[in-house]
Nucleic acid binder design. Structure first.
Lengths: 229, 229
DNA sequence: TGACGATAAATTGTTAACAATATAGTTTGA
DNA sequence: TCAAACTATATTGTTAACAATTTATCGTCA
């Protein structure tokens, strides 16, 4: 891995974390020079990182000549992401059960403890991060690198969607659901594990406002003005 | 979409087709200048395209300072790709059944006819292409853009894997399996469609030599020389 | 002969200057 | 006062020159 690639992935991962952990809200302008200055990086590298985030994970949106912003996925896109993620999560859980071992069980328990710590500390960002890490750990345990990589992108994307469409600002505490899922994995109980995954994902999605119609706003109405003849 | 982006996607799609249709065998050296000359493109654009093919679809492998080649995925990677693809294909088939309509049924039949034509013409490359298009069409019919995009990458990747690990050089004729699957979709029979998908994917994979161990070759033995003291 | 090293050529990798565009600010005129 | 036109600044986009590295060529010498 060349120096340039290292730089680009470094920048990508800093931006990705910031977006996933809701430190950079959807719509935030991302100026190349500003980022380069903050991260002590070359603008070319920042530029490349932004393009990759736009194309590979779609957490950044690019408008030609106008630059980059944190993406604002539509409700339709959000639904597709959730649906796709559910597919991958179930597959990964199923394969993870087959790969279960004492060491892996231990890794799961350790991760749950991190999540619990974040909650006790009332550290919102850490909660989001560790919750994501739990899902990534399952993907890793599954042993299928391809599935894991695809899922990882969707997990980040989901986090952005939550930032955009979750009404209550308080983090949905998923610890209990995670604990039950982990137990099913450790018990090598695929049916339960898959069922819990399904519940868990639906539970997250149900806290989102994805079913409001993308409203064409009547400007006149909104401004209390009537232009009709 | 800017001019540069258009150029890059143009180059990507030309290279992708060439790799997927086995005109560029695994391991082929891909020199930036040569490609730029052939496609009348800027080397910078070629370079960007190669990098994206390496990162996004993994049909190209990059070695720093040594350039790009058509990738040669390992047997392990190939297995993961097949496993992941099966997951996505099943999901997409399931969602496609729910989206079925006369127009979409028609599109499926039209695509099958293209495949049949390719076979009648004994045009190997067209056979590969149209076979891939059949799977992409189902993904598109499913209506889930996210799943479709992920699957599309895996379809291309699969084609490269087949080039690498299929012993018989003749294209495995999948028309009948495609016809049966299409019928199940048109009949809105999800169970049959999913079962046929599973069979179809396994059938393809079974024609590959993925279970030979990645052998550590004993050089001395291979050369008939014994260096032992 | 053929191993070694030096030189040249080919190829990839990097960068900073420049161009193009968008945004903000300022002047002017009615 | 306001809008339009103009200017200046900020920001993104492009490129070609250059640097670094690898590969090929050639000559030397043991």
């Amino acid at each position: 891995m060349s120096h340039a690639e290292k730089e680009i992935t470094r920048i990508m991962s800093i931006l990705t974390s910031a977006i996933a952990e809701h430190r950079l809200p959807p719509g935030t302008r991302l100026k190349e020079e500003v980022i380069a200055g903050l991260l002590e990086a070359n603008r070319n590298h920042v530029r490349a990182a932004l393009r990759r985030l736009a194309i590979e994970i779609k957490v950044v949106s690019l408008v030609p000549n106008k630059g980059a912003r944190v993406a604002q996925p539509s409700r339709d896109e959000a639904k597709d992401v959730f649906s796709a993620r559910l597919v991958l999560e179930k597959a990964v859980v199923e394969q993870a059960v087959a790969q279960m071992s004492p060491a892996k069980a231990n890794a799961l328990l350790k991760q749950l403890e991190k999540e619990a710590q974040a909650i006790r500390a009332n550290d919102r960002q850490r909660m989001i991060r560790e919750s994501g890490e739990f899902h990534k750990l399952i993907a890793q345990i599954s042993g299928n690198r391809v599935l894991a990589e695809l899922l990882e992108g969707l997990i980040t994307r989901t986090s952005l969607i939550i930032a955009l469409y979750q009404e209550t600002t308080d983090v949905k505490c998923a610890l209990e659901e995670h604990q039950r899922l982990a137990q099913a994995l450790i018990d090598k109980n695929p049916d339960t594990a898959i069922a819990l995954t399904e519940e868990h994902m639906h539970s997250i999605e149900s806290h989102l406002q994805l079913d409001l119609v993308e409203k064409e706003i009547d400007l006149g109405l909104a401004l209390g003005v009537n232009f009709s003849v």
